[in-house]
């Protein structure tokens, strides 16, 4: 057992963790943030993607203790005052959500991309989500959604 401090979705946490605990388990089992998904547990699928200090990580490949004093964003942290983030809205509007299991990870990869590059090309979008597998959509609608999200963010 070890105590760590971290910030998740703007909130400070002080939690007891086991040494062999993954960040994914900390989020899902301790903090009850089940929006972060586990599709493979070995860094292949990106369903567990979260943003740690501005960059995306596979939370199944990061140990919980490595999150000490870090700032984490999960899918639950995106809505502001009950309003969807423009990326979430764009995923809805473009029909980019099917089974939805890849969606939280996709949205967060899109966010990390757009935060750095507000107007990416379709090629750059594909690159930006290259660590996220989707078995349902065939990706086109997801790329459309991220393009649209880039417009929505400009309008805001």
């Amino acid at each position: 057992m070890k105590e760590i401090k971290l910030k998740v979705n703007h909130k400070d946490y002080h939690v007891a963790i086991e040494e062999d605990m993954r960040l994914l388990d900390l989020l899902r089992n301790r903090l009850n943030l089940t929006g972060t998904k586990e599709g493979c547990g070995e860094g292949e699928c990106g369903a567990c993607t979260v943003i740690m200090d501005g960059i995306t990580v596979n939370s199944c490949m990061v140990m919980a203790f490595q999150a000490e004093n870090r700032e984490i964003f999960t899918i639950e942290g995106l809505e502001k005052g009950g309003r969807l983030d423009p990326i979430q809205q764009a995923f809805l509007d473009e029909g980019a959500v099917q089974c939805g299991f890849c969606t939280p990870g996709m949205v967060l990869s899109a966010k990390a991309l757009l935060d750095k590059n507000p107007k990416p090309t379709r090629e750059e979008i594909r690159e930006g989500i290259s660590g996220n597998l989707c078995r349902c959509t065939g990706y086109n609608k997801i790329v459309d959604a991220i393009e649209k999200a880039s417009e929505y963010r400009k309008e805001e």
């Binding site: 943030l33 089940t34 972060t36 998904k37 969807l84 995923f91 809805l92 959500v97 089974c99 939805g100």
Partner: peptide, 16 residues
Amino acid sequence: RVDAAAKVTGKALYPE
């Protein structure tokens, strides 16, 4: 989709 908003916010509950 009826469940799209729940899925895009991480609120949709899968069995796990």
